[in-house]
Every structure is written in structure tokens, then in C-alpha cells.
């Protein structure tokens, strides 16, 4: 565990909690892509199946349970409790275009051809693109609430910090995981455009709105 890994995890946790609180406090999930949230719930579910097979540390187990629990709570709030506020018309990204290729790729390129390992690989690949329905929704509506941009920033920052973690681990531990690294780079690159808008607009007190 190094500082990048820890801050990455905390950034991820912050993102998840920001989103939950935003929906809970405003009693609305307007502007939030339910599809992205379903994909994240699927990511955590398929990645953390090792909760049943191996114990790593109390930290590891607690974080996994919190991530999974929050992911399903978010999906519940969007599709059940505050369903009336869900903006389904703008959440029109076709997720099968992500899930099917990612499923195929995880069967073809993995560390080991076993069910748990393939599901883990699937989760890594899927996570790298799971935000696309959300970004698509923002590009469609042309704007995002400021609190939503804070959520996206923390979520993007988390994988960027993991990249630094992997650089650190390569130099100091000789460790690298090519699948996680390539997917992590893809994931971070997808946020770059957003990072730019966040820094140039949101941090200067302006609302994030895209030119028509």
C-alpha cells in the first residue's frame, strides 16, 4: 500500500458517497445515468467475488463491501425510490455495445482461463468504459450540475492515482499487471476531456455547460 493507492481508494470512496448524498439530499437523480450506475454495480459484483474465496485484509474486505453496498443503493435510489426523477430519455446509451465486446475480450485476453479470473478481467475492462453512458448523457443535455461534476472528478482521479500507484509498484516492487494498466490508461483517458472542462469551468465557479 502506497500513498497513491490509498488516496486512489479514498477518492473512489468519495465519488461514490458524493453521488449517493447528492441523490439522497436532493431527492432526485436528474442528470445521473442509471445505466452507468448499473454497469458499476456489475463491475463490483464480478470483481469482488473473491470475497467468498479469500480473505486479504480487514481494509480490503470492508472497502469491497462498502463499494458493492453503495453501488446497489445508488441503483435502488435511481430505479426505485426516485424513479420519477430519472431522466431515462437522455440516458439512451446502448450498453450492449459495451458489455458484449468487453465480455468477448475478457474471454480472449486474461491471466487465467478460469471463471473467477474471467469475471475479474470482465470487471476491469467494463469499469474502464462504464462511465460512457454518463458522459454521453452530459453531452446530450449539454450540461451537468456542479455536484455531478465533483462526482465525476473524484471518479476519474481515482484511476489516475492508481496509474501512479502502478508506476510506483513497478519501480519499487517489480510488480505490474498489464490488463489492469492498459484498462486503467483507457479509463483515465476517457476522463481527460472532462478534467479539462472541470478545471477551466467548474473550479472557476462556473456551471459545466457545453456549447450547443
Amino acid at each position: 500500500m502506497n500513498i497513491f493507492r490509498l488516496t486512489g481508494d479514498l477518492s473512489h470512496l468519495a465519488a461514490i458517497i458524493i453521488l449517493l448524498l447528492k441523490i439522497w439530499k436532493s431527492r432526485s437523480c436528474a442528470g445521473i445515468s442509471g445505466k452507468s450506475q448499473i454497469l458499476f454495480a456489475l463491475v463490483f459484483t464480478t470483481r469482488y467475488l473473491d470475497l467468498f474465496t479469500s480473505f486479504i485484509s480487514l481494509y480490503n474486505t470492508c472497502m469491497k463491501l462498502i463499494y458493492i453496498g453503495c453501488a446497489y443503493a445508488t441503483v435502488y435510489l435511481i430505479y426505485a425510490k426516485f424513479r420519477a426523477t430519472y431522466d431515462g430519455n437522455h440516458d439512451s446509451f446502448r450498453v450492449e455495445f459495451l458489455v458484449v465486446p468487453v465480455g468477448g475480450l475478457s474471454v480472449l485476453i486474461n491471466h487465467d482461463f478460469s471463471p473467477l479470473e474471467i469475471l475479474w478481467t470482465f470487471s476491469i475492462y467494463l469499469e474502464s468504459v462504464a462511465i460512457l453512458p454518463q458522459l454521453f448523457m452530459i453531452s446530450k443535455t449539454g450540461e451537468a450540475e456542479t455536484i455531478t461534476t465533483h462526482y465525476l472528478f473524484c471518479l476519474g482521479l481515482y484511476r489516475a492515482l492508481y496509474l501512479f500507484n502502478w508506476i510506483w509498484r513497478f519501480y519499487f516492487e517489480g510488480f505490474f499487471d498489464m490488463i489492469a494498466i492498459v484498462a486503467g490508461v483507457v479509463q483515465t483517458v476517457l476522463y481527460c476531456d472532462f478534467f479539462y472542462l472541470y478545471v477551466t469551468k467548474v473550479l472557476k465557479g462556473k456551471k459545466l455547460s457545453l456549447p450547443a
Partner: peptide, 10 residues
């Protein structure tokens, strides 16, 4: 050299 994944990372 093939390194396997780290089960500790989230």
C-alpha cells in the same frame, strides 16, 4: 515474465 494480478487492489 508474466505477473499475476494483485488480489489486494480494489
Amino acid at each position: 515474465e508474466e505477473t499475476t494480478k494483485d488480489k489486494d487492489e480494489l
